[in-house]
């Protein structure tokens, strides 16, 4: 039972990051491969303002969110958007976001140094008992947050016209612009929220393991895996994917050792992609001649 509960909790962190992939994908059909660096950016931004004692800790967390959010919107405008102009087969954005990840990682390392820094903002100590398993409150917070944020996103996208606009932009940005809607602004908005979430995850994650430039790299692969398992087009996907991935990798590493944990998770991605390329909850797009 213990690995299952821990896996679900761990899956929450991945789900939060996976949600940022899904958000950018359903609006702009792009993924930000630099998401790991936005995790670090959020964490370090919060540390940078941790001495501002006039700012309540909620405000410091918000700084982490906003810093990643602003950089995210700019990244979309200048690094992603220019490389999506050649139609559906255009995958240059994939390379440019990978390159962005190099640049950000290198810059953060040069500025902050490679070793982990302690982050006390948003730290909650103690643990609670979940079905007989002790789970740290900090980790539980991440998992709960992932669920809450996913639900908010789902409600907003279904109940407001924002969801309609997002889907329109993803299906045909050019025609959307003829409806008086700026696909560029919609994309920047999606990136702002998505990278803000990554920054938020970074702040909360850093409270447990400390902030370091490379803290996002291992999360990148796991969370992209979670997003793909659940389906890049579905806001419910990260919750399902996070739970499956988290539980499977925890159980595998519990039974066979740490290296098998990650391997099992990644093999799950391959299995899902083979069986259902659009993800477990994704809808298949019909190709028409």
């Amino acid at each position: 039972m213990e690995p299952v509960i821990l896996g679900l909790v761990l899956g929450g962190l991945y789900a939060l990051l996976a949600q940022s992939f899904v958000l950018t994908f359903i609006t702009t059909k792009t993924l930000n491969f630099a998401v790991g660096e936005f995790v670090a950016l959020g964490a370090f931004a919060t540390i940078a303002v941790s001495s501002w004692s006039w700012l309540p800790s909620f405000g410091r967390v918000a700084v982490g969110f906003l810093a990643a959010s602003v950089v995210g919107a700019l990244a979309y405008r200048f690094i992603v958007l220019p490389f999506t102009t050649q139609g559906e087969h255009d995958t240059r954005w994939l390379l440019s976001t990978v390159a962005l990840s190099f640049v950000m990682l290198n810059l953060i390392t040069n500025v902050e140094g490679p070793s982990p820094q302690r982050s006390d903002t948003a730290r909650i100590s103690g643990s609670v008992d979940v079905l007989g398993v002790g789970v740290s409150k900090q980790q539980l917070l991440l998992a709960v947050l992932a669920v809450v944020i996913s639900l908010i996103l789902i409600v907003v996208s279904q109940r407001t016209s924002i969801g309609l606009v997002m889907r329109a932009v993803s299906q045909d940005p050019e025609t959307t612009s003829l409806m008086g809607i700026s696909p560029r602004l919609v994309g920047m908005g999606a990136y702002a929220v998505a990278m803000g979430l990554a920054g938020l995850a970074g702040v909360l994650y850093a409270a447990t393991v400390g902030a370091s430039p490379v803290m996002g790299a291992p999360l990148l692969v796991a969370s992209i895996a979670v997003a793909v398992i659940g389906g890049l087009g579905s806001l419910w996907g990260p919750l399902l994917g996070g739970a499956l991935y988290g539980v499977l990798s925890e159980v595998a590493s519990f039974q066979y050792g740490a290296i098998w944990g990650e391997t099992a998770g990644l093999l799950l991605v391959i299995a899902v992609l083979v069986w259902k390329p659009e993800g477990l909850l994704g809808r298949r797009m019909e190709v028409k001649l």
Binding site: E88, H89, T91, L94, V221, T263, L266, V269, V274, P277
Partner: peptide, 28 residues
């Protein structure tokens, strides 16, 4: 064979996953 129906980002992801797996195995 396993990535036969994939294009674009999904194909990139599956190949990235492979590279990461190899890296982990060599490191650990």
């Amino acid at each position: 064979v396993s990535s036969m129906r994939l294009r674009g980002p999904q194909f990139a992801v599956i190949t990235l996953v492979l590279a990461v797996l190899v890296e982990r195995i060599l490191n650990e």
